[in-house]
Write a protein that binds this DNA or RNA. Structure first.
Lengths: 214, 214, 214, 214
DNA sequence: AATGAATGAGGGTTCATTCAT
DNA sequence: CATGAATGAACCCTCATTCAT
């Protein structure tokens, strides 16, 4: 039978009130951004959280479930921040679309670690339906919101040659593609430039409403 | 215009032997597209190639080296196809840019398996400088080519508000982003629409030269 | 005849408190009968008792001690029931031996769960002297009782070719073997038949005294 | 990635021609007889076979499958020996039944180790249908054979009060019960006595045919 | 070149045990 | 007495790698 060492056990006990779950998820994010998913071990994660081996299984049952919870956490974090920013923009669709772009290239969102973690999960999503599901959910909320805004803008603009659907796809693709740039060539990636590219896309498609904005 | 990629030509020569090496690389690609890199084992690869266990180490020394060769192979395959298409377009920059877009959303290039493999490597690249290097090389060749074309188009167009550099980033981001769409939402992804989005981007930026094209 | 088993009386007193101890032992029995000893975890046991994790160690110190107490409990339960039945039979050795057989194939004793638990412990006893000791104690009490009865019957019968010792071994072996049947082939096992086999054994060995009984 | 130590690897290589599979099964039997199933680790088994850790999984996939193969091996070994002995007895049912009894209490069959392993598996069989299946198969073959012999003997004897079925159950139970004795009280267990008990059982039930045999 | 049995490091997971609350 | 989060040893299993054949 297995016996725990009582002396080693006593010391490393007192931690902050932050729940262990949260500590472990944050440690997981850190580890994934540093090593990737596969090189992230349960040992890494627990050590990174200042806790001991078995604890991850105690809280999350399996590594797979830990990863799922981590992805959910990231997704929710993104959406919460997204919604908050959108609320600040008020009811003006012009301000809204700009605030979304600003948000997506904000340092808090568009930094190497977060993007890395996001793409790491996305890379696995093809083989893990659960990941895919979570990614899609975020995607749909995000797309839906943008679609609504573009629909309004199209109405106001009177003549545009792209449909709201295509415009949405396009902005999404642009954003994702530019994020990827940051990953592949982070030295040369300039947040401001990426933002401008997106804003220019909006201007080009709604010249009347966004004239003089660039 | 750029001259032939030296990595490309070298590797294609080697592979032309149609040896076990090639069988193993193809098996690796298949396995990655089905399972991802982490679940791809030496055993998978050798079995998929109809060969025996130890053979991969015999030919590629380590798993890491096998993966590197595989990535090189994919990258070269892309570039070879890219160059071929470009040559067909002749010297007209308008035709060239369109042919590049057509190429990127051709079934041979933009299909779920190929994209999946590509993004899988890209997902790992952050933690594996060797992968990153190979990805960048492809990227630079591709970007460089597009940059040259956009530079000529800008000259002809007279007034455009985006620089050749930004236009290049933008088209690249669009392409990569749209490819990603195919991965995340392959059911709703429509190759033709993706192509149109890119073409529209070119039209919007060079209205004089591309008028009447859509 | 033998006097009351001292282990028995002591434990029954302890358990009469109807405390958590008893709940835990019962939960242990249930778990062993459902899963076996190896798959019985402290967690299983405490949950089954409607109590919390650490409680088992609190009450029994270690898993090993819990199992020992459980085995003792079962052994005592058997012996208590055995003694009770024997008392009802009065002083007639013929009635006594029959009542012992009846008891051993009574539903309360010879049912799949109880037998399973018993054999599970017996299976471990080879490697755990403590279990062996407890099993032997029960065995010796039981054998001793039967031996005494057979000795009297032999005296009365005048000629029998088997010694009291062998007769005892034989009845014991028969009983244990038939119990095992119930475990291995519980569908086809018939309590009544098993009982008859044992009774027939007695008849065959003491034809004068048991004539006309079957 | 995992790297094997090449120096340690080289030494412990050359073994006898006995296949690894067989070595591992024998090591498993030894370990189970010494420690029981649960305390038998993959490490124990491979070390006992003079091989290295991962080899058991290589040959048997999982511990469970190793155990199943081991049980099958034991069962087959028993049946092979049983059949051989029966053949030697020729066609005489009297000789046959005696040779079966002799076989069951032969040192090769009825020794502490073998019995221990057998009962260990039997103890687990309630929770593992696969074990149960294998145990039953052996049982049915064995029972079937004895049943046939008893049927013939009953015919010849003319009057017996037990059916062939009951006689079979009874001999089986006796054998199993006596084997158990050897486990629980191996010091006092006497092979010869156990044999006599069984022979006496036959004599008592077929007095005409077996008179003067004891 | 090719085979495939064998190696062994390392990972995920389980679970008896401890202990602050 | 009771709780349940935390500990850590030990297990099973995977798999890249080696090497005799």
């Amino acid at each position: 039978m297995k016996k725990a060492n009582p002396i080693l056990t006593k010391n490393l006990r007192n931690n902050s009130k932050k729940t262990s779950n949260l500590k472990l998820i944050n440690s997981t994010i850190r580890s994934i951004s540093e090593r990737g998913i596969n090189e992230t071990t349960m040992s890494n994660v627990s050590q990174g959280a200042g806790l001991s081996q078995g604890i991850v299984n105690f809280h999350f049952k399996t590594k797979e479930l830990l990863l799922i919870e981590t992805l959910k956490f990231i997704s929710n974090e993104y959406l919460a921040s997204f919604q908050k920013r959108l609320q600040k923009a008020g009811d003006d669709p012009q301000k809204q679309i700009i605030s979304i772009i600003d948000h997506d290239f904000d340092k808090k969102i568009c930094n190497r670690d977060k993007i890395a973690v996001w793409y790491t999960f996305l890379g696995e999503a093809k083989f893990k339906p659960v990941y895919m599901q979570i990614c899609k959910e975020r995607d749909e909320y995000y797309s839906g919101t943008i679609f609504s805004i573009f629909s309004i803008l199209i109405n106001k603009e009177k003549n545009t040659n792209l449909s709201a659907k295509k415009l949405t796809s396009c902005l999404l693709a642009l954003t994702m593609g530019l994020w990827l740039d940051q990953l592949v060539d982070s030295e040369n990636f300039i947040r401001q430039e990426a933002r401008e590219i997106c804003v220019d896309f909006v201007i080009k498609n709604f010249p009347k409403q966004f004239k003089g904005l660039s």
